[in-house]
């Protein structure tokens, strides 16, 4: 029960919320605007984080170049997924997208020489004799920020707090940019395509192009989340990129209301508390379960929240009911 009182724990929760928020924002562009049901979003996070880690550890790349390459590979992953399967209608795309992210994960899992396989990034062969780490450059920044926070927050200020601040600044910037993008006529065409393809194409819009762009932009944002993920966990493992991660993001998206970005940050925090907070469910009736069983409670609780939401408020906490109900 002591952890609940530790500020560090809550900083951790907020940081994870922020990373999930960034990750979910990618889905928001795809689904909230374009109606594209992507269940393989986590694959983009896996591509960017592993690309970055491999380039830094095994090839000695500058961190920033490696991170940019990671995001670029995620964008390429999105382009590949889109070009090959986006012509499939709705549900079929969703099914293929799950397969895509699972293929990415299995390839990572089985490519021992390249990715470290099941042992994760710890087993990536480093260039020279260095300890296999990709966080050095980032840590320098984090410690610099920490040193400037210490006068304000005292002992509480640490590396994790600096990380949390950077994550949330990034999320803020991305939310701002995306909300601006969603006011353009580009987004208007995409919104039309989530209902119907014939009308926009009869008006001269290349529906495929718009969809492909939405998937690529979503993948870039997912890729950025992947870089932050890698920096936060410091050691990557293929198990970080299970399909359930995509569904956590879906939960955040549904919670916030898919069509608007404004609720996303709050929904992400809500999710973070639910996700991290269940370990404190030591009271009755949860006291019947041991701690490992309790960790599964969160998945149940998330399920219950989603069901209640679907019944009581299908448009999400911040969504517009009219926009959903008009069928």
């Amino acid at each position: 029960m002591t952890a609940i009182l530790q500020p560090g724990f809550w900083v951790f929760i907020l940081t994870m919320s922020g990373i999930y928020g960034i990750f979910t924002l990618g889905l928001q562009v795809q689904y909230g605007v374009g109606g594209i049901l992507n269940f393989g979003h986590v694959g983009m996070m896996a591509l960017s984080s592993y690309t970055m880690a491999i380039l830094v550890i095994a090839h000695g790349f500058n961190f920033w170049i490696a991170a940019a390459s990671g995001v670029a590979v995620a964008a390429l992953g999105g382009a590949f997924l889109g070009l090959t399967t986006l012509r499939l209608r709705g549900d079929y795309f969703s099914i293929v997208s799950i397969a895509f992210s699972e293929i990415v994960r299995y390839v990572i899992f089985n490519s021992d020489g390249l990715t470290g396989g099941a042992q994760g990034s710890l087993a990536i062969m480093p260039i020279g004799d260095a300890y296999p780490s990709y966080t050095d450059t980032w840590d320098t920044i984090l410690y610099w920020i920490r040193d400037h926070l210490t006068p304000i927050f005292g002992e509480i200020a640490d590396r994790d707090m600096a990380m949390g601040i950077l994550v949330w600044i990034t999320l803020g910037i991305l939310l701002f940019i995306v909300s601006r993008v969603e006011r353009t006529s580009w987004a208007r065409v995409l919104r039309a395509t989530r209902e119907d393809d014939d009308v926009p194409s009869a008006l001269g819009k290349n529906v495929f192009r718009f969809r492909l762009q939405a998937v690529i932009i979503g993948s870039i944002i997912g890729g950025i989340a992947g870089i932050y993920w890698a920096l936060q966990v410091t050691l990557l493992s293929p198990d970080d990129f299970l399909t359930i991660v995509t569904f956590y993001a879906w939960m955040i998206l549904i919670l916030s209301g898919a069509t608007k970005v404004k609720g996303l940050a709050i929904a992400a925090i809500f999710f973070g508390f639910l996700y991290g907070g269940t370990r404190f469910f030591t009271f009755w009736p949860f006291s019947f379960f041991d701690s490992s069983q309790r960790s599964y409670m969160r998945i149940m609780i998330i399920g219950i929240v989603l069901i209640v939401l679907m019944i009581r408020r299908p448009q999400g906490i911040f969504g517009k009911r009219e926009e959903m109900v008009l069928e």
């Binding site: 993008v181 353009t184 006529s185 580009w186 065409v189 919104r191 039309a192 762009q213």
Partner: peptide, 28 residues
């Protein structure tokens, strides 16, 4: 008659505008 139900009437019309620079992401 097909209308995009979840866009406003005005937005439906705006879809028809040709060569809209805003349709191109670069013009963001």
């Amino acid at each position: 008659a097909k209308v995009i139900k979840r866009l406003s009437v005005l937005e439906n019309l705006m879809l028809g505008a040709q060569n809209n620079p805003g349709d191109n992401l670069i013009n963001f």
